[in-house]
Amino acid sequence: MKLNFLNLAKYKSKTYRNTNYSKRSIENEHYKIALEISNVGLWNWGIESNRVFYSKESKQIIGYCESELNSTSEFLDKKVHPDDKEGHYRDFKLLLKGRIDSYENEYRVLCKNGSYKWILDKGKIIEKDLNGNPTLIIGTHSDITNLKQKEAQLNKNLQLITSQNKRLYSFTHIVSHNLKTHIGNFKNILEFYDEANCENEKEELIQHLQSISTSLTSTIADLDDIISIKSKAHNNQLNERVNLFDCVYKVVESLKTESIKSDVTIYNALRKNEFLMTNSAYLESIFYNLISNGIKYSDPNKKSQIIIQSINTKDNLKILISDNGIGINMDKYKHQIFEMYQTFHGTDRKDSRGIGLYITKTQVEALQGVILMESALNEGTTFSLTFKKQKTLV
């Protein structure tokens, strides 16, 4: 009797096979645990059957349980944010056409609770048919919402810093120019003084020196005010609960003489129970500057009035200060409104130094607010001040 030849090189015992499968199972379990810990979801798409498998983690990212998520590719595609669909489809088509080796896209997806989350979606073709067409794609989902929010905040901070740097450059340029002008005038007057031949001429030059000295003192005071405002913007002096109606009432009372003299009626239409976490001195100064501007540039040919009112939204409080005064030509001056040493009304008022709105804007921004202005020549002006509600400033 002849025995069949036994090829020991290819022979694997049952024990070996079981052990091998056991090692493979342990390895798969390790991968599964690692994905759960990292909160990365798995998906794969069988193209011919149009069936998509989503792992538990993928479903949890957008708030669904395992039994709720439809297994077709269209289900998740329909939940991609409308603004992100074009980029998502474009990149995925490039993968299907073989123009890229792997797919990667960031997009927002609609969650079960109605909110949107940012998803980092990656995919790669792992199987093709005999004609080279893809038949199976495997990929991952990662929740990058927090990362996107931090990125948006960083961009916002960068824009703020860039804007502040531009304003600082503009400020230093203007101050430097003015200081140089004063110094140059001092130098010229002193040279003329040395060359003067009579006492009357010298006395006139001394008067010019006094005028230049007054102007220089005013410029330095402006600089000191602005630096003081900017330095306080970074400490806890901006943390008071201020009643807006009372604050405006106080300002209106302090301007009573001016308003009566100019025949301007001021309406404080703010609610008596409106409060803002802010700095009372700054807010009072802002109201004073804007209301006094309305009095200063009232139209003598009208029944002049100033109205202070508010608009509430969920997150913001907007304060409107409107007048029916002489107004400003915004087509001509809109880019200069809040710049230093700019005047726009074409009047000969000696008290119009062109610094008030710059300081007001600086104060509003120190309170983490936004100031805007609308105006029409011979019709009037409205300033809007927008602040975050009940937010402690630090």
Rank of each mutant, 00 (worst) to 15 (best):
T392L: 05
Y16L: 13
E191R: 05
Y103Q: 02
E195N: 12
V80Q: 00
N316G: 04
E195H: 07
K59C: 14
H234A: 06
Q368P: 00
K180G: 04
A221T: 13
L209N: 01
I62N: 04
I47W: 11
L270F: 00
S170P: 11
T257N: 08
N178P: 03
L69Q: 12
Q207E: 13
A221L: 08
E203P: 00
Y297H: 12
K314G: 11
D224V: 07
S25R: 10
K332L: 14
D351N: 09
E191G: 05
H177V: 07
G356R: 04
I174C: 07
P82V: 15
I119V: 10
N44H: 08
I311W: 00
T219Q: 02
D121A: 03
E57F: 12
K150V: 07
L238Y: 01
I47P: 04
A233W: 00
N18G: 04
N44Y: 08
D194G: 07
S231G: 02
E191P: 02
V109T: 11
R17E: 11
Q210A: 03
I286V: 14
I355M: 10
T214S: 14
S280H: 09
T219I: 08
L110V: 04
S142C: 07
I189F: 01
D331G: 15
T392K: 06
Q237D: 10
V248D: 00
I144T: 04
W45E: 09
F387C: 02
I319G: 00
R17M: 13
K332Q: 13
P300D: 05
F338L: 14
G356V: 11
E29W: 02
K12D: 03
T362C: 15
S322L: 07
S170Q: 15
I220W: 03
S352C: 12
L255K: 08
Q368V: 04
T313Q: 02
G132V: 05
C247V: 10
I291R: 02
L320Q: 01
L76F: 11
N197F: 07
E339W: 02
Y16G: 05
V264G: 06
T219E: 09
Y193S: 07
D246C: 12
K314F: 04
N273T: 05
G87S: 03
V175P: 05
S22K: 09
N197W: 03
H345T: 08
L270D: 00
Y31K: 08
I189W: 02
F287N: 10
L190M: 02
R241I: 14
K302C: 02
E74F: 06
K388N: 05
L158I: 15
N165H: 14
I337A: 14
N50M: 14
L42V: 15
S73T: 10
K388R: 01
I26L: 10
E36Y: 13
E195F: 08
N239E: 13
V40I: 15
S49F: 10
K202E: 06
T145N: 06
I229F: 11
